[in-house]
Write a protein that binds this DNA or RNA. Structure first.
Length: 564
RNA sequence: UGCCCGAUGGUGUAAUUGGUAACACACAUGACUCUGGAUCAUGGUAGUCUAGGUUCGAGUCCUAGUCGGGCAGCCA
């Protein structure tokens, strides 16, 4: 348990501070930004958000909340060729679902295109930017390499008047895509490649999802991002490590313009074992139908995790546990799974469901008799009350819960042995029925009427308790079992697609679930006793119930079995 | 042979800013249990990348090195 310190205002803050909190508190002590804390979450709407973004969302919104500040949602939509409204919508949905509120502060970099254009003119007039006629290929050649300095563009010293004229004509659409750029005039010998006269605008005759065909020149990330931060009065501009090299350029632009200067701070992005996190790869999984869309429950996307059965609380708690630092990391997916179990253990109603049914006949139970037995909905939360489950002569149990020849330490049903049926009776296996091929088709048992759960005489103890469902009352369901998408911990080499787990989805039909589950709705979550946590899939209907296994229960038996 | 960043157990993150390595996950063992769940208890493994140095004392400071990551889109 993490210790909490109670603040005078009654809010709690984590005891441990990470380096960004240290920076902010130092700024607060120095009354920087007049004591304001203002962050932003700035996704590009070119894909769905994933668990790595969730870390960033929790960080940015969390910091704002902790320091009584604000956090904006801003779409970095400066590349119309890759961005779409669908992504904007999904991002908003996901951030909201995670539990964060940007209030009225929903912004787009494209909101600032006019301001950016005016500022570009200001830089041209100051002799700090020029129109360059070099082709993409030529620009690349002039840039030099990591170890060699670059060469100045022959167009670098055009007159201000000519630059102004050309830039205006670029804007008017007089030139074809790729024919010219506006570049900042900095230093072609700079050891940081980002400072070698970086491109500010490129010509793109493309329709933008918000500005339509108004523009045919679009600002580059570096030119748009810091300026957007500045316009919004962002105090701490938090981003991932790969932008570290861009910070000098970020600073250069705001300094040349003489505008509010947010502080860029970089942290290490999240990596998770047995999955990929790059948008490019996730897009590929979707487009090549390796998974069934962005919200496939095997995807590390927020929408995938949601459909799988993850709760916002579990994801926020996970984000909290992984910490914030600058060193590269690879988080064990077991920590994510733990976060879900921790949350659902307290909240999910218990139900009985049999995934791979094996028929059990209680031979000494009266034909036609049905008893309604009392079951606890959640032993962790008495307030969730009780329900009733029907018991009768013919039941289903899990195939795994019967072994004709039991391995060592097997506590479940075996010939001649006794086992407790949860919330019901102790039964004893008397006979095994097989088909012509020797497969077990049913198991015959007798029950001990004295051992009814909750009754005064039910003192006898048996080693194992198994779950069951009354055949007559059971509801059929489809259950989808998910496993990790990749077979290796770090599937990030060039051969990543060869490492895809061919058995990451196992769909079971003809599963038998207890009566109480007949009326469930998509997104509802349950614990199927002894099996795991399950979530009603979006495909589910009352006629055709579909459950996704979000995560198994901790399985001590599996470990024993494995070590034998 | 460029610039920037990083380095603490199996994995992450801490260490009162120079005071004798902690927390979580994972792992192992035991107790309890009508979920082999939950809960509780216990345990192991680190001399903090290396080598020097400063100091009574270094994960924290200094010097030199080693290893890892990022950067050469008109992507973000």
């Amino acid at each position: 348990m993490k210790e909490q310190i109670t603040e005078p205002n009654n809010s709690t803050i984590p005891e441990r501070k990470h380096f960004i909190q240290e920076i902010i508190e130092e700024d607060l002590r120095n009354a920087k930004n007049n004591g304001r804390v203002h962050t932003r979450f700035p996704p590009e709407p070119n894909g769905y958000l994933h668990i790595g973004h969730a870390k960033s969302i929790c960080l940015n919104f969390g910091l704002a909340k902790q320091y009584n500040g604000k956090c904006n949602l801003r779409f970095d939509d400066t590349n119309p060729t890759k961005e779409e409204q669908e992504y904007v919508d999904s991002i908003k949905k996901d951030v909201r679902w995670l539990g964060f509120d940007w209030e009225e502060r929903e912004f787009f970099a494209s909101d600032y295109f006019h301001q950016l254009y005016d500022w570009a003119i200001q830089l041209i007039k100051a002799g700090k930017a020029f129109v360059c006629d070099l082709s993409g290929e030529e620009v690349r050649k002039h840039r030099g390499t990591l170890t060699e300095p670059g060469k100045e563009s022959p167009y670098r010293n055009r007159s201000i008047e000519e630059n102004l004229d050309l830039f205006e004509r670029m804007k008017k659409g007089e030139f074809p895509d790729g024919s010219r750029t506006l570049r900042a005039k900095i230093d072609m010998n700079h050891p940081n490649l980002n400072m070698r006269d970086p491109v500010m605008y490129r010509i793109l005759h493309a329709e933008h999802h918000r500005t339509g065909n108004e523009w045919c020149i679009y600002p580059m990330y570096d030119w748009a991002h810091g300026e957007s931060d500045s316009i919004e009065g962002i105090t701490h501009s938090i981003c991932t490590l790969e932008f570290e090299d861009h910070r000098p350029l970020y600073n250069w632009y705001v300094e040349q313009l003489g505008i509010h200067h947010p502080q860029q701070i970089e942290f290490a992005r999240l990596n998770l074992t047995y999955t990929v996190m790059s948008k490019r790869k996730l897009l590929q999984l979707v487009e090549e139908n390796i998974v069934n869309g962005w919200d496939d429950p095997r995807m590390p996307t927020i929408s995938g995790l949601r459909r799988r059965g993850y709760t916002p609380e579990a994801i926020r708690s996970f984000a909290d546990k992984v910490g914030v630092a600058k060193r590269d990391n690879m988080i064990d997916v077991a920590l994510l799974e733990f976060s879900l179990r921790e949350d659902l253990n307290k909240k999910a109603a218990r139900m009985m469901a049999v995934l791979r049914p094996l028929k059990v006949v209680i031979t000494n139970y009266p034909d036609g008799q049905v008893e309604e037995l009392e079951a606890v909905n959640n032993p962790e939360d008495p307030a969730m009350g009780m329900r009733t489950v029907p018991f009768s002569k013919v039941l289903y149990i899990e195939q795994d819960d019967f072994k004709e020849v039991p391995p060592p330490k097997y506590f479940r049903l075996t010939p001649g042995a006794e086992v407790r049926l949860r919330y019901a009776y102790i039964i004893k296996c008397t006979n095994v029925v097989k088909d012509a091929n020797g497969n077990i088709t049913e198991v015959h048992c007798t029950y001990d009427p004295e051992t009814k759960s909750g009754s005064a005489q039910s003192h006898r103890k048996v080693k194992g308790t198994i779950h069951w469902v009354s055949a007559e009352h059971a509801v059929d369901a489809e259950v989808r079992l998910y496993d990790r998408l990749f077979t290796e911990e770090n599937p990030n080499g060039d051969n990543w697609k060869e490492l895809i787990n061919p058995n990451s989805l196992e769909a079971l039909s003809g599963c038998k679930v207890e009566r109480s589950l007949a009326t469930v709705k998509p997104q509802e979550r349950f614990q199927f006793e002894r099996l795991g946590y399950f979530c009603v899939d979006d495909d589910s209907t009352p006629e055709n119930l579909v459950f996704n296994r979000a995560v198994t229960l901790r399985d001590t038996w599996a470990k024993i079995e494995k070590n034998q």
